[in-house]
């Protein structure tokens, strides 16, 4: 299974940095996310996670380090968490870590809402 590596950029739109590593069972999304075609960008990430959780089935760690995302992105994050939840329900081992700025109350609310919405345990880790 191929890894996904996307270097984030900030031009007209804001592209997050994505590192999905199959061998390590490690996924990370960082930076900011405001894209022209949000679903088109996230679709390959959904497919990667579906393949990993259906075929590789190793323990997986999902790290989110986004400092800003728009509402279209917010739906895609929920979809990613939904795929992980399904894997966990099927006996997979999943760790979700969300790194956030402790001063960012809005982000804290967002993470809490994802816990309610996805049913996943999310570890809140303050950024240095």
């Amino acid at each position: 299974m191929k890894d996904i590596y996307i270097q984030g950029s900030r031009d007209v739109y804001i592209v997050p940095t994505v590192k999905f590593l199959a061998k390590q069972g490690s996924c990370e999304i960082s930076g900011e996310s405001f894209l022209e075609e949000t679903i088109k960008f996230y679709q390959p990430l959904f497919e990667w996670l579906r393949e990993f959780t259906a075929e590789i089935r190793k323990p997986i760690t999902f790290n989110v380090k986004l400092t800003y995302f728009n509402t279209s992105t917010s739906k895609c994050i929920l979809t990613l968490l939904g795929i992980l939840k399904k894997f966990e329900d099927d006996g997979g081992e999943v760790t979700v870590n969300w790194f956030y700025d402790e001063d960012d109350e809005d982000m804290k609310d967002d993470i809490e809402d994802y816990v309610v919405d996805s049913g996943m345990k999310i570890n809140l880790i303050p950024l240095d």
Binding site: E37, T71, S72, S74, L78, D113
Partner: peptide
């Protein structure tokens, strides 16, 4: 927040937006 969570579960709008 509850309203947002409920709306977010709906399919994307015609413009691909999140309804939220």
């Amino acid at each position: 927040r509850e309203y947002k969570r409920n709306q977010r579960r709906l399919p994307p709008g015609v413009k691909g937006g999140g309804n939220i």
